[in-house]
Design a protein around this nucleic acid. Structure first.
Lengths: 246, 246
DNA sequence: AATATTCGTCTATTGATATAGACAATCATA
DNA sequence: TATGATTGTCTATATCAATAGACGAATATT
């Protein structure tokens, strides 16, 4: 069980307690730790990682703060949540669906919206002239009370005037599209990357610094293959994985 | 241009210089910095981030070490590499292909291989009995001299005996499969997630601690829909993005 | 009730991180 | 050539991270 020569890097700009927190989180997700719902005692973890008990305590405190662990004096430290949600990605991807079996309570929430001039990337993706007017929508989606993703979407302002208000009213992009005569739509392409969470992500997704977000950049098209939505979605990587269907 | 109230978190377990390095790397990839191939002077960056010049120097030193920046005394600091490789993922995914336009020199490299008993996940994915014998292969692939991904693959040992040697000889999974009579194959499913790089990733992909890997877990099937390969690939998230085709 | 286990809190010490300031070295340019 | 801009190096100091040890508090077990 022991792995005492596991080399925690000491002058790396990442404190030992955070390196250990990251690894415990990883091991929980991979099922290599906490299989019985409880973490080994602090002294055992300290020996395992080859560090002082206080250092382990720092790691545990961070994971408790994140809601991953729960510590009880005299009893032990327990795993609070372990499962990751799986988002399907494919031609028929709707982020709001495909999760019905995985979370009881799912809701989207409009943070902000405005009309602005399309930047180059957006104009290209939507097939519009440079600096054409577009509607920008910032949303957060939660599952069972925990934020899982944060998206910025752009729509052609000419075709989808007032889209944000419609979305707020209906609570679903799919339903809002129907109001505009888009009965069905498809995912044309998705680019997936990953990076450290920025300030906005940290805030809206309630993450701790150094956390990771999966970034999905997508173009949706209507049945006539005209682009209708360009979106960049940031998922909390600890809470979500993406499933690509063949 | 200034953004002096950008709050670098000070007691987060991540040193300021590393937070700043992470953000500069992010801004480079997003084109918000270094558009003209050169970084603003250290004093300007220090003012921008609201920290001491020495702290910025720490961040730059780390990025120079990573090969992202190049500092020249008296002249300035310059961007060494910015572009990310784009890996296509779809029914016809072959990681080794689809990159021909993006990198001049691409090569795979066998790190290690052995025969072992399948764990539950592997047996399930390959449709084998629990603990059935499988061949395990650890590989690293490089593009233009920089490691971009690290994969662990499993194959049915009964059907693909000696696969690792064949791969080493031919340098390609696709070619090796042909030796075993698999003329064509398809990607059945891909799970994409992201996490902090572990010790092995750090080493083989030449990453610095706190770096991010994109994890793609995939099952390949032959033309009769029989699973032939189960693989977990870790991509250096700074160097790669994944493109999901509709 | 007694004991062992485990988490929680305190003090003290050492090493790494961040700030501050000064100045040297290199390069571009007026 | 002289000047300004920029990176490189040095010293000093204050704050944070990590180690070490001791002991208290809550819980489970004998």
């Amino acid at each position: 069980m022991k792995n005492p020569d596991r080399t925690m890097e000491r002058r790396s700009g990442i404190s030992l307690w955070r390196q250990i927190a990251d690894q415990i989180r990883r091991d929980l997700v991979q099922g290599r730790l906490g299989a019985n719902g409880r973490l080994p005692p602090e002294t055992a973890l300290a020996a395992h990682f080859g560090v002082n008990r206080h250092t382990v305590r720092g790691a545990i405190a961070a994971l408790v703060e994140e809601g991953v662990l729960r510590a009880e004096q005299g009893r032990g430290t327990f795993v609070e949540q372990r499962r990751r949600l799986t988002y399907p990605i494919g031609a028929r991807t709707r982020f709001s669906e495909g999760l019905r079996d995985q979370a009881r309570d799912r809701r989207g929430h409009l943070l902000d919206h405005c009309e602005e001039a399309a930047d180059q990337r957006t104009a290209e993706a939507l097939g519009l002239a440079p600096a054409a007017p577009v509607i920008r929508m910032d949303t957060v989606s939660e599952a069972d009370g925990r934020p899982v993703s944060r998206a910025t979407s752009w729509f052609d302002a000419d075709r989808f005037g007032g889209f944000a208000e419609t979305y707020r009213e209906l609570g679903s992009v799919t339903l809002a599209f129907q109001r505009y005569g888009v009965a069905d739509y498809f995912r044309r392409s998705t680019l997936v990357s990953a990076r450290h969470a920025d300030d906005g992500d940290l805030d809206d997704l309630r993450l701790s610094p150094g956390a990771i977000v999966l970034v999905a950049i997508a173009v949706n098209v209507d049945t006539e293959d005209r682009p209708i939505q360009f979106a960049e979605t940031r998922f909390a990587a600890d809470r979500v994985e993406l499933s690509v269907m063949a």
